[in-house]
Simulated assay, not measured.
Amino acid sequence: MTSIPSLGLGTFRLQGQIVTNSVLDGLELGYRSIDTAQRYGNEAEIGTAIAVSGVPREDIFLTTKVWVDNYPKDRLADSLEESLARLRTSYLDLTLIHWPAPNCGVPLEDYMIALVDAKEKGLTRRIGVSNFNVSLVKQAEAAVGKNMISTNQIELSPYLQNRKLVEFLQREGIHVTSYMTLAYGKVLEAPVINAIARRQLATPAQVALAWALSLGYSVIPSSTKREHLASNLLAQHVRLTREDMEQIAGLECNCRMINPDGLAPEWD
């Protein structure tokens, strides 16, 4: 089974023709991993972009996330069937539980087992979680088995390095996927990042993405501008030095950008 690509195209907050154009540009530039979610409300537009792109479906790694309303066991698989119809595909490469939503009324064990059932039906080739803390990942592992969870997609940036959670995931053999790696652009203003960018003859965004890639994470940055999409791809060729990595490690300040009430856990 294909491993989770290291650099993908995020689509959070992109709607309508904007997301269609972004995915079309990304696929033309060479992106082969696309990340979406039921909650984003853009699966149909992404499906259209993939269909008209000319890129074979088997060459694309497609991820979506199940929204909280669809966690009940009698809804989860049906909701993925609906996602597949919108995305114009017969399978997903990866499906994640979007948020743990501790007070949603559906026990974690129930929705994780329902997700496994969806996998066994062939709706998705891999399953995982998003925004889970250490305790919740342990509960998910207990529910479905330690080898079933492919990734935990979590907010990570030079300003939020989440070391305790990352170290746990890596010990467990669960891949780390970083979202919000640029912290809504805030890390691009950091003097340390800019100094490294000048030394590396790179952009600050490339440096931040290269930091995450160097740590073994997958990243899924988004952009509405073709030139930024192209530039982000080049982060894969930036080789940060040990000194660069140490300096970026010093930027940790627990600056979390996404923390919705009722959905987020108590963070480690």
Score class of each variant (00 low, 15 high):
R198F: 00
E172S: 13
L136M: 13
S90F: 00
L94P: 12
T203V: 09
I174Q: 07
M148H: 04
K121R: 15
V192M: 08
W99D: 14
V144H: 01
G145W: 09
K138N: 06
L188G: 11
P107D: 11
R88A: 03
I196D: 10
I97E: 09
P191C: 09
V129A: 05
V166D: 03
R198G: 00
I127D: 07
L80K: 09
G122M: 05
L94N: 11
V137H: 04
W99S: 13
E141D: 11
N131D: 12
N131I: 04
T177G: 02
V116E: 12
N194V: 00
A183P: 03
I113S: 08
G128V: 05
K119G: 13
L94S: 13
V192L: 10
S130C: 14
E189N: 12
L165H: 10
A142Q: 14
L115N: 04
V176I: 12
L80C: 06
V166M: 06
T89N: 03
N162L: 12
K121S: 12
K119A: 10
A210N: 01
S135W: 09
R86N: 11
R171P: 00
A183S: 14
V207A: 11
Y91W: 11
I196C: 10
R163S: 15
D117K: 09
L160F: 15
P158V: 14
R86V: 00
A210Y: 01
P107I: 05
K164C: 00
R86Q: 13
L94K: 07
Q139E: 15
G173L: 12
A205Q: 06
I113C: 06
M148W: 02
A140T: 12
L160P: 01
S135I: 12
